[in-house]
């Protein structure tokens, strides 16, 4: 971080606000603006986007003029693991089914913690959690989520013949 940025939090916030505002404004240019009396679909978003850019600019100005707190350590690993776990769950839940999706979500999510140990206690907890979720949400409340998705359906067939 450059030394002349005296308030880093204001700097990054300003940057995000200006960025979001500019993006919003650019998209909103496609919608009809209308008049104050008869506002078009583009009126409200464009006004909002301009205000957001203005706020962002003030924040950027403050980043160089006032003294503020630094941005503390960013937890990259937990952030990526948690967000990634949720995305993986979303990808798997309708394809491999809820059970597999939950296992991946919990394992990946838990791995985001530095305290995570893949031991018997964790496995038992995980199995109990998956079983409880399946029982409560799918069997109990009847949510239309497949426990075993189309990817793994054939596997069930195999197990069926073995039995």
């Amino acid at each position: 971080m450059a030394r002349w940025i005296t308030s880093p939090r204001d700097f990054w916030t300003g940057l995000i606000y200006v960025g979001l505002g500019a993006g919003g404004l650019w998209l909103a240019l496609d919608y009809k603006f209308g008049t104050v009396g008869r506002m078009g679909p583009g009126y409200f978003p464009r006004v909002l986007a301009v205000i957001l850019i203005a706020i962002g600019l003030v924040s950027l100005f403050r980043a160089f003029s006032s003294k503020g707190e630094p941005v503390t350590h960013i937890a990259i690993k937990p952030l990526l693991m948690i967000v990634g776990a949720i995305v993986a769950y979303g990808l798997l839940v309708h394809t491999a089914g809820l059970i597999v999706a939950l296992l991946v979500l919990i394992l990946m999510g838990a791995a985001g913690s530095s305290q995570f140990r893949f031991d018997v206690k964790a496995i038992v907890g995980m199995v109990l959690l998956v079983a409880a979720c399946s029982a409560v949400f799918v069997k109990g409340l009847g949510l239309p989520i497949p426990l075993v998705g189309p990817w793994l359906q054939p596997l069930l067939g195999v197990l069926g013949t073995v039995r």
């Binding site: 793994l152 054939p154 067939g157």
Partner: peptide, 26 residues
């Protein structure tokens, strides 16, 4: 720990192979 993980992987692999081979019943 390492062996556990490997065993798990192997199990997954064989499971995968077995169900790919079998088609859904009509």
């Amino acid at each position: 720990m390492q062996t556990n993980r490997r065993a798990l992987l192997a199990l997954c692999g064989s499971a995968l192979a077995s169900f790919v081979a079998i088609s859904t019943s009509p």
